[in-house]
Design a protein around this nucleic acid. Structure first.
Length: 456
RNA sequence: UCCUCAAUAGCUCAUUUGGUAGAGCAUCUGACUGUUAAUCAGAAGGUAGCUGGUUCGAAUCCAGCUUGAGGAGCCA
């Protein structure tokens, strides 16, 4: 009985000895066929390829070989010092999986050629076979698991918050409104939207469970056509009871450093592969390992909004006014001209008028206990705050911002449980992946990107 | 959504002011048992994004549309 192996398992350095001279089976698709002898195959379980030796016995079959043809191969494992994986398989039996359309494959993005990422996006349903996406989605998967791991260690409880709700008033961009069915009939007896954030619901869970998080897709109907925005993206949100601004900032720094450290240690092969890609095809030297190390090893820059405004005005007087939001031009100046360091900048105590209603105000009554973490090259990755715990102040904010009270009455009612100070933040998952992988467009770090006009 | 730029073979790109469309790789045919995106010889491949206009003549100039890239705004 032939045992079939995943390529990942066959290439495990420590296990090679156990495989030598054994007959094994593998299933995968062709990447290269060279010198009428060497077949390189992959099965998606690793970014490394396995080399198969195909001798004259298969001369008729070889004529059919082309990249992306799927094969079943049975053969003898041989030790080969010259090969970078140190093993190869001498084929004894080869079966082609039929039903393929060669013309379709070689005219698609699966053709063995360099394609721009924007070109690949035109046929994004095929891109999971491209090595670069094999790499990106492995890192994404790894990061996803590590987020849950870290929060489990910290005893923070996972809460799934609803994807459909009736509050569009959170102040986080435009919402998608739902029709209950094709006829436009409404079974909710109220307007329903795709959620822009799970935070409000998460806070109600926090009042019972103390430390909670939610991690899932959120939806924004903004018509923003940039490389840093999606209509559907993943957000991690954390709410911690009895936690002041200072401590939520500390937690977010620790969290980020933990994640990047884990990726640096455990995704080295993937990161190296990405660097080779940039070097070979883009003529760019992006050192992803340094990028991560710099964040892990350095203290983040931390300044108040007021301090940042003074620094910006000192750099160029009319570039910003107190009360303005910090835009991408300002971010670039901060990183390149003012601090001259590519390490994250934390800005806290933003003015009340540019932040949402739920953020707790400072004693000066014009700023809030809020913070953002800006990453070099990417911009805002985390936004958070201490939450307003005073019922009356929350009520006033809602009136001031002209938000419909009816649908979020339940939210301010939570404050009737007592003035319990608490804080939280949201992390843009895709943006973090962008920083780690160096991928320029956010549409290339999510498996199925949804953005304005994507249905075309 | 606004501003700027671009769209030529399956892919990456040439085509110097308007005058019959070019290369490398991929493909096809052949050669090749130690290659690492193998190499060598030959062949085929195009209504220049779409629609209209100017002109004897448009890939090239003009207008509109579509798509993409860069930047801005909104934000994560």
């Amino acid at each position: 009985m032939i045992k079939y192996y995943k390529i990942k398992d066959l290439l495990k350095k420590n296990d090679i000895i156990n495989f030598i001279n054994k007959i094994v089976g593998v299933k995968g698709w062709i990447l290269f066929f060279r010198n009428n002898l060497f077949l390189e195959i992959n099965d998606g379980t690793t970014i490394d390829n396995l080399q198969i030796i195909v001798n004259q016995k298969f001369n008729d079959l070889k004529k059919k070989f082309f990249p992306n043809l799927c094969l079943k191969i049975i053969g003898k494992v041989k030790y080969q010092k010259k090969n970078k994986n140190n093993i190869e398989i001498k084929a004894k039996f080869i079966k082609i999986y039929n039903g393929y359309n060669k013309k379709f494959i070689i005219k698609s993005i699966l053709q063995n050629k360099y394609h721009r990422l924007s070109k690949i996006r035109e046929q994004s349903y095929l891109r999971f076979r491209k090595k670069i996406f094999l790499t990106i989605f492995r890192i994404r998967h790894y990061l996803f698991l590590e987020i849950h791991n870290y929060l489990k260690k910290k005893d923070i409880i996972y809460i799934s918050t609803p994807l459909i709700n009736n509050n569009n008033a959170e102040g986080a961009g435009e919402t998608f409104q739902l029709k209950s069915n094709e006829q436009g009939k409404d079974i909710f007896n109220n307007k329903a939207y795709l959620t822009v954030s799970g935070q409000l619901e998460l806070e109600s869970a926090m009042y019972g469970l103390s430390n909670v998080y939610s991690f899932g897709p959120v939806f924004r109907a903004d018509n923003s056509n940039t490389d840093k925005h999606l209509c559907e993206f993943w957000m991690l949100e954390i709410e911690i009871l009895f936690c002041k601004l200072k401590n939520i900032i500390k937690l977010s720094i620790k969290f980020i450093k933990y994640l990047l450290k884990k990726v640096l240690i455990n995704c080295k092969k993937e990161l190296n592969n990405l660097m080779i890609y940039y070097n070979k095809y883009r003529n760019k030297n992006i050192n992803l390992l340094d990028r991560l190390t710099v964040i892990i090893k350095n203290k983040f820059i931390i300044k108040t909004y007021n301090q940042i405004i003074i620094l910006l005005k000192k750099y160029k007087n009319n570039i910003i006014n107190w009360g303005d939001d910090i835009g991408s031009i300002h971010e670039k100046i901060l990183f390149n001209n003012i601090f001259k360091k590519q390490i994250p900048i934390i800005i806290y105590n933003y003015p009340k008028k540019i932040k949402p209603f739920y953020m707790k105000e400072n004693k000066d009554k014009i700023t809030t206990k809020s913070f953002d973490i800006l990453f070099p090259f990417i911009g805002e990755i985390i936004g958070g705050s201490e939450r307003e715990d005073n019922y009356q102040k929350l009520y006033n904010n809602i009136k001031e911002k002209k938000i419909n009270l009816k649908n979020i009455k339940w939210y301010i009612n939570l404050r009737k449980l007592g003035k319990l100070y608490h804080s939280g933040f949201g992390l843009g998952f895709e943006r973090l992946i962008q920083y780690i992988t160096g991928i320029k467009n956010i549409r290339d770090v999510i498996p199925f990107p949804i953005y304005p006009g994507y249905t075309k």
